[in-house]
């Protein structure tokens, strides 16, 4: 990936993130923050690559900590988000139309 392509990805992703949040009702702010917290758990993948390429003991120790923390971010973020969203239920059919704003 060349630098300029990476820059394009960066810009488009930034707009995407902005657009996703811009129309969110306040009631979903906490779950959404938690959800986005889960999404940056993708750092796990990078930590796996870093540990996979670690040579010295120091690199391995840091890489191990990185994978451990990354896995914690991903799994913990998923569990709490899922628990919160599980509770969002409407009271009836009429709510289904209203809730889609």
């Amino acid at each position: 990936m060349t630098g300029i392509v990476a820059l394009y990805i960066f810009m488009l992703a930034a707009f995407t993130g902005y657009e996703i949040i811009a129309k969110v009702p306040v009631i979903l702010h906490t779950p959404l923050m938690s959800g986005s917290n889960f999404v940056h758990g993708i750092v796990l993948v990078g930590a796996m690559v870093a540990l996979g390429n670690a040579d010295t003991t120091l690199e391995k120790v840091i890489g191990f900590a990185g994978v451990l923390l990354g896995a914690g971010n991903a799994v913990g973020g998923y569990v709490v988000t899922e628990r919160m969203l599980e509770m969002f239920k409407a009271s009836g059919a009429k709510a289904k139309q209203k809730g889609s704003h």
């Binding site: 930034a14 949040i21 999404v39 993948v45």
Partner: peptide
């Protein structure tokens, strides 16, 4: 740094969404 598109996209989306939030 790792040339990893998934990290770039997910990280940036969270970065901008989080800033707005």
């Amino acid at each position: 740094v790792l040339n990893n598109a998934a990290m770039i996209i997910a990280g940036t989306v969270v970065g901008s969404a989080g800033t707005l939030l």
